[in-house]
Amino acid sequence: MYAPAALLFLVLCWRVLRERRRFSNAVLLGLTALCALVGWLFQLISSGTASGTVVAGVLLAVGGLGILLLTGLLFSNGLRMVRKEGRSPTNLLSLMAALCVVGLIALLIAAAVVRTPVMLGVGAAALGVACYLSFLFLSFLAYAFLYGRLQVRRKADYVVVLGSGLSGGSKVPPLLAGRLDRAREVHARLTGRGHSPVLITSGGQGPDEDLPESHAMADYLTDRGFPGELIEREDKSTTTEENLRYSKAVMEKGNPGYRCVVVTNNYHAFRAALTARRLGIRGQVVGAPTARYFWPNATIREFAAVLVAYKRTNAAICLLFVAAGVLVWALR
C-alpha cells in the first residue's frame, strides 16, 4: 500500500539532488504525501476494526473544520491587508480566496439540494478544479518551505539582492531592508569560509522614485559598515526576471564560471529560483523573513504567478475537469 509513496519519494530525492529548482519537485512531494495518506486510510478502513473507521472519520472531520478555519483566517488577513497596505488588487488576494471558498461551498450545497443535471455538472467541474488547485497550492507551499531550508553551497562568487521598491522615492522600506540584512548575513557566512564574494544590488528607477533602487540599497549597506568596494549596482531592471537577467550579465562579465546566492523574501524565494533556473543562472535562492500579516497574501500572489507561468498545462487539466462536469450533466 505504501509502495507508490516510497517510489515517488525516491524519485523526489533523486530530482532534488540533480536540480532543486523545479516546480515538478513540488508536485512529486504532493503526490508522495497524497499516496501515503491514501495508503494509511485504506489500511485503517480495510482493517475492519471500529477504531480504523473512527480515525478515518475524524480525519475527514478535521479536514472540513480546517477548511472553515482557513476561510476565516483568510478573511481576517484580507481585512488586515486592506487596513495596512491599501485596497490595491494585489492586497485583496487573501480576501478573494476566502470568498472563492465560500462560493464553492455554497455551490456544492446547492447542487446537493437541487440535484438538477446542470447543477450537478457545474458542481462536479468546480469541485474537480478546486481540488486540483488546492493540491497544487499545498504542494507549492510545502516544497517552498522545504526549499528555503536546503543548505546553500559553501562557496559563491556573488550575492545578488533583488529590489522591491523604495518608499518616499528614496528610502529603503522594511521589506527591502530585511533582504539587505539577510544578504549581509549570507555574505559574512561565505566570507568566514575563506571566500569574499561581490554583492550585487539589483533594481532600477521607478517612475515614482528619486534614484535607482540599487543605489539606495548600496547606501543602506555602506551606512551600516559594509565595504563599498565589494558592491556592484545593477540599475536597469524593473521586474524580478530583469533583476536576474541583468545581474547574470554582470556576473558573467566579471567571472564566466561564477556561482551565486540570490537573496529575496521567503515567500518569493521558490518562484525566484524557478525563474533563475529558466534563465540559466548558476546559483540558489535564499529568503529573508517577512511580516506575518503580509505573508499569506504574498504567498497566494506567488502561487498565482507560478500558475500563469505554466498556464498551458494548468488550463488543459482544468478543461479536463470541465469536460468531466459536462459528462456528469449528460449522464443525468
Rank of each mutant, 00 (worst) to 15 (best):
V101P: 03
R83F: 07
V102T: 12
P89I: 06
T90I: 15
G103M: 06
M96N: 07
L99Q: 10
A98G: 15
A98C: 09
L92I: 01
K84M: 14
L107Q: 08
L108N: 02
C100H: 10
K84T: 13
A97E: 00
L93T: 14
M96Q: 11
G78R: 02
C100R: 10
L92K: 03
L108T: 05
G78M: 05
A97L: 06
V102R: 02
R80P: 00
V82F: 09
I105N: 10
T90C: 10
V102Y: 02
M81L: 14
G103D: 08
A106P: 05
T90Q: 13
L95M: 09
L99Y: 09
L93M: 13
L79S: 12
C100F: 12
I105C: 14
R87E: 05
T90K: 15
L93P: 05
L107H: 06
G78C: 07
L95C: 02
V101A: 14
V102W: 06
I105T: 12
L95R: 00
R83V: 13
A98E: 07
V101W: 11
I109S: 11
L79N: 11
L95Y: 04
S94Y: 03
T90Y: 08
L108Y: 01
A97G: 04
E85A: 01
V101M: 15
I105Q: 13
A98T: 09
S94P: 08
L79C: 13
P89A: 04
G78K: 02
S88P: 03
V82I: 14
A98Y: 05
A98M: 08
G103N: 06
L104V: 09
S94H: 04
L92Q: 01
V82C: 03
R87D: 02
N91P: 07
M96C: 11
